[in-house]
């Protein structure tokens, strides 16, 4: 379980912003790869830069973030105490939804602090996979299973969102050819990462059955 959880965490970490340090993060993922699972290729510096600046940054050109809240209804039906439901509870594409709230509860219980850069997205995949790994290190398979089932079940939707972004980009190319090509490569690489992570998560949950 531990090795598999480590690999999931290492792949999740590739969705964080590393700047010039990114090759080390890929190295760590490649070193911990599980046999039979795909291993993402290390992208060129310009492609990785586009991925970080223009895909994985909120408010950027092709922003498509691996944040659970964006892919799930924002809030469950009841407002607590039998009260009114949230006005836009069923909406998606909103940050700080139920998944983020629930993760905050877990972090509090585990006495972990969310860093300021993740304030608006405590359910970012880099953090979710790290928690899964911590549970695994503590030998708590049930908690890993719950976390995977509750919080890591949306990666295929994320992969689809990246693919849709790529299709939209190809339909309306950017004026600068180099910019366009690098961003297209970055989105394709994002799809590859999301696919690899989906498979690694599937593999981890199979191993916990």
């Amino acid at each position: 379980m531990q090795k598999r959880a480590n690999y999931v965490r290492a792949l999740g970490a590739l969705f964080a912003l590393w700047g010039a340090d990114y090759p080390a993060a890929y190295e760590e993922a490649r070193a911990g790869a599980i046999e039979g699972l795909s291993v993402p290729a290390v992208p060129s510096a310009p492609v990785r830069r586009r991925l970080e600046n223009e895909v994985l940054t909120l408010g950027s050109l092709a922003a498509t973030l691996p944040v659970e809240s964006l892919y799930k209804p924002w809030a469950s039906a009841s407002g607590g105490d039998g009260g009114e439901p949230a006005q836009f509870g069923a909406a998606r594409n909103l940050l700080l939804g139920d998944s983020a709230q629930h993760m905050r509860v877990l972090y509090d219980g585990l006495e972990l602090d969310v860093p300021p850069a993740y304030e608006a997205m405590p359910d970012h995949v880099a953090l979710l996979t790290e928690v899964a790994c911590l549970y695994a290190e503590a030998g708590n398979g049930e908690a890993v299973r719950d976390l995977v089932a509750d919080h890591l079940d949306w990666l295929d939707a994320y992969e689809e969102a990246l693919a849709a972004r790529l299709a939209a980009l190809e339909a309306r190319p950017l004026p600068g050819a180099q910019h366009h090509d690098e961003l297209a490569a970055a989105l394709a690489h994002g799809c590859e990462l999301a696919g690899a992570l989906t498979r690694a998560i599937h593999d981890l949950s199979q191993s916990l059955r």
């Binding site: 290492a10 970490a13 964080a16 993060a25 760590e28 972090y107 219980g109 585990l110 006495e111 972990l112 602090d113 969310v114 860093p115 993740y118 880099a126 953090l127 790290e130 928690v131 911590l134 549970y135 290190e137 503590a138 030998g139 708590n140 908690a143």
Partner: peptide, 15 residues
């Protein structure tokens, strides 16, 4: 490894 979450992880809670 570099971690994102900061703080002390409560072992009892994790387990």
């Amino acid at each position: 490894r570099r971690t994102f979450l900061k703080g002390t992880a409560a072992t009892a809670a994790l387990a």
